[in-house]
Amino acid sequence: MSNIQVETLNHSYGTKPALHEIKFVIEPGFNVILGPNGAGKSTLFSLLTGILPAQTGKVLYDQVDIKSHRRAIMHRLGVVFQQPTLDLNLSVQQNLTYFGALHGISKASVLQQCEPLLQAFSLADRLSDNTRSLNQGHRRRLEIIRALIHQPQYLLLDEATVGLDADTRQLVLNTLRDYVQANNVTLLWTTHLMDEVLMTDNLTLLHKGTIKAQGKTEVLLADAQCRTVFDWYCSLTQTVEAM
């Protein structure tokens, strides 16, 4: 199945609420959580990865609670955080093999597993380069390759294309969409960039800590009689703000 189920999540920082009654199920495929800055995407992401403990509610991976079975879930979860997490003191290869080793995977297996993606992301000839020498786009590509090393069933990517040029963004998105289709994984993509959403994606709109809409993009747009995601987003968030 490989689904992720979120049950009635609430989260606040002190007295400031960040998420309110979040409830959804994510099935295999390309799932997008769209929301402006400050909508609560990163908080939700931290709860999904277990980086933050849930104050109320549950996060279940195939009906298994991350709170009680975090280790087992980590084996099957690939994550790209919004904040860069590469070790700039290590080379490209060392970053990959270090991550692989932290999941119990040998260096040979890591390099074999990464080879096609290194080629696709034009990093194959930069294995021995220091990570510090890579530009932001290449660092992001490396983080994505790294998240796939242990062949996860679930992939969570938080604003993974922020700061990338248009070509690199397209390359990253196309590669991941192909990967999802070929491997039947459950991918969750959080973004504030509307042009990253396709009509075939499963879309969730997160606004001011609550879910405003969820469904297939084309259905959501048709129901709201909107032509573009931007129109749909504006109509929905303006409606919300008027309330």
Partner: peptide, 10 residues
């Protein structure tokens, strides 16, 4: 941020 890589280990 590299601490997160360690903490995401199973």
């Amino acid at each position: 941020g590299s601490m997160k890589v360690l903490l995401m280990s199973p």
